[in-house]
């Protein structure tokens, strides 16, 4: 059935347009949002929304935590999986980071305790990452179920480690990481940009990225091509957990406290960012740039609605509508450029 579509010139041209739209629509949407808030700001408050450094800093800071979760989630979703545990992995990492720093500070001083605290956050995130990968790749547990189990485990251990409350921490270097600026750009934003560049390179230019797409497109084909699919799947879930740990460290730095529930509201925002960015939940498609745009769209909606004094609950409605639109766009794209869900 795809034959006819691809071979008739009209349909081919149509497909090119749709493919272009599917890539560009999230950019257009982001631009429209910005124009909307800009116009509103000028009309209602006689001020600029965009040409305001405070707004830009706030939006980008807002986007940092869900974006970091979404970066790892992008790889997971492209490979055809999903990771529901990253939100609480982030919380667990934040708590462990804060606890260790607080505990080691008197003995080791702020520098060493900072380094150990951050390393410990990444180390503890390896446990859910490796476990997810083992369950899914070796034991054949569906990703949704395996990571849902890990969601509970990370949640429980996070709260246990925190003693049921938030863990405050005082450390001047940590405060720099969380709240300082370099050339006017908040440090967490700079760190996130570096992670984005790294992930974009890995996904779009490396064999690792190519195999991630191949596994999501046709796992069997990837196996027959000699790709070590099990090890690769494991690596993807570990990367997702490490991104969550990064997010947890930045959370602790920004709020000078670790909290087990730090990532709880972010998980669905992260998945939404990936989907809005053009990834298919069936696997095989998605990009880092798309995910960044998706995360920015969500952040602009959330911040912008507060900015124009709309009741905050409308944020959820707006983000929900955008998610549904993006899935509809994805579906019409696959219908016109060759079905992929139905083919399998």
């Amino acid at each position: 059935m795809t034959t006819l579509e691809a071979s008739s010139p009209l349909a081919a041209r149509q497909a090119v347009v749709v493919r272009w739209l599917a890539v560009a629509w999230s950019w257009l949407f982001l631009a429209l949002l910005l124009v909307f808030f800009e116009v509103w700001a000028r009309a209602a408050y006689d001020t600029s929304f965009l040409l305001n450094r405070f707004n830009i800093q706030s939006i980008t800071l807002f986007a940092v935590a869900p974006l970091l979760l979404a970066l790892g989630q992008t790889l997971v979703i492209i490979s055809g999986g999903i990771d529901l545990s990253v939100g609480f992995t982030m919380g667990l990492a934040a708590v462990i980071c804060a606890r260790l720093m607080q505990w080691l500070d008197p003995a080791l001083g702020p520098e060493l305790s900072l380094v150990i605290g951050i390393l410990a956050a990444f180390a503890v995130a390896l446990i859910p990452g490796l476990t997810n990968g083992y369950l899914i790749a070796w034991l054949g547990v569906p990703a949704f179920i395996g990571t849902l189990g890990m969601y509970g485990i990370a949640r429980g251990t996070g709260f246990l480690a925190a003693g049921g409350t938030t863990v405050p921490v005082r450390n001047e270097y940590l405060a720099f990481l969380g709240n300082d600026r370099i050339l006017g750009i908040p440090v967490p934003v700079i760190i996130t940009i570096l992670v984005v560049l790294l992930m974009h390179y890995v996904l779009s230019q490396s064999r690792f990225g190519q195999y991630t797409y191949a596994i999501g497109g046709n796992r069997e084909a990837a196996i027959r091509a000699g790709i070590n699919v099990k090890r690769h799947t494991m690596a993807i879930y570990v990367i997702a957990a490490l991104c969550a740990a990064m997010s947890g460290v930045l959370y602790t730095a920004r709020f000078s406290a670790g909290a087990a529930q730090a990532g709880e509201p972010l998980l669905l925002d992260a998945i939404a960012a990936v989907v809005i960015g053009g990834a298919s939940l069936f696997g095989g498609s998605g990009t880092i740039i798309g995910t960044v745009i998706g995360a920015l769209i969500i952040a602009v909606i959330q911040y912008g609605l507060v900015f124009i004094n709309v009741e905050p609950f409308w944020q959820f409605v707006a983000v929900g509508v955008v998610i549904i639109i993006s899935v509809l766009v994805d579906q019409s794209r696959s219908r016109l450029t060759g079905a992929h869900q139905e083919d399998r």
Binding site: Y201, R207, Q210, Y213, A214, N218, A222, A225, H340
Partner: peptide, 27 residues
């Protein structure tokens, strides 16, 4: 055993991709 989401070149070379140097540095 084709990865339907990848192009022809990617399928022919799947698992054995040739690399170049980006900016003379990164593979």
């Amino acid at each position: 055993a084709l990865a339907d989401n990848l192009d022809i070149g990617a399928n022919v070379f799947l698992g054995r991709e040739p690399l170049r140097r980006l900016f003379g540095l990164l593979p």
